[in-house]
C-alpha cells in the first residue's frame, strides 16, 4: 500500500510543468528525460553542457529537499535486482525507438497535442498497466 497524496502530487506535477515551461522559454527545449539523457550517451551530441547541468539539478533536488526540510521522500523498490537490470535495458531500448517517455510524450508532447505523443502515451500507459496486471495477478510477483 502507498498513501493517496492528491495535493502533494498535484503540487509536484505543477512543478514538473513549471520546469517544462521554463526549459522551453529559456532554452527552447522539450523537457523530456529521454531526449535530454540521450545527448550524453554515445553517439554524443555537441550540446551536452546544458543537458549535464539539467541532470545534475534533477539528481541534486531530492537531496536538497531532504537536507533543507527534513521531509523523508518515500522510496520503495519492490523489484529484485536481475529484473531491475532487465527492466532498465527494456526501458532504454523502448524510449529510444519510441522517441520519448512519460515526460517528453506524456507531458510536453501531450500539452502541444502532438498526435505522435498522444498515441505513444496511450500505448505505454496501456502496456504498463497490462504488465503490472500480469506480474502481480497472473504470475503473483517477481
Amino acid at each position: 500500500m502507498t498513501e493517496f497524496t492528491p495535493f502533494l502530487s498535484l503540487f509536484g506535477g505543477s512543478l514538473i510543468g513549471l520546469a517544462a515551461v521554463l526549459l522551453m522559454a529559456f532554452h527552447g527545449r522539450v523537457a523530456g528525460m529521454t531526449g535530454i539523457l540521450s545527448g550524453i550517451v554515445p553517439p554524443f551530441s555537441n550540446d551536452w553542457g546544458w543537458r549535464a547541468a539539467f541532470l545534475a539539478g534533477a539528481i541534486g533536488a531530492p537531496a536538497l529537499i531532504v537536507m533543507s526540510t527534513g521531509y523523508a521522500i518515500p522510496f520503495e523498490s519492490p523489484t529484485p535486482a536481475p529484473w531491475l537490470v532487465a527492466g532498465g535495458l527494456t526501458v532504454g531500448v523502448g524510449v529510444t525507438f519510441g522517441s520519448g517517455c512519460t515526460s517528453g510524450h506524456g507531458v510536453c508532447g501531450m500539452a502541444r497535442l502532438s498526435p505522435r505523443s498522444i498515441v505513444a502515451t496511450f500505448t505505454f500507459m496501456a502496456s504498463t498497466a497490462a504488465t503490472v496486471f500480469v506480474v502481480r495477478h497472473l504470475i503473483g510477483g517477481l
Partner: peptide, 18 residues
C-alpha cells in the same frame, strides 16, 4: 512498438526515465 516496449520495462520496475 517502442512505447509498448517501454511500458513493459516500466511495469516490471516502476521506474521511468524522468
Amino acid at each position: 512498438a517502442g512505447a509498448a516496449v517501454f511500458g513493459i520495462g516500466w511495469g516490471i520496475t516502476g521506474f521511468c526515465p524522468g
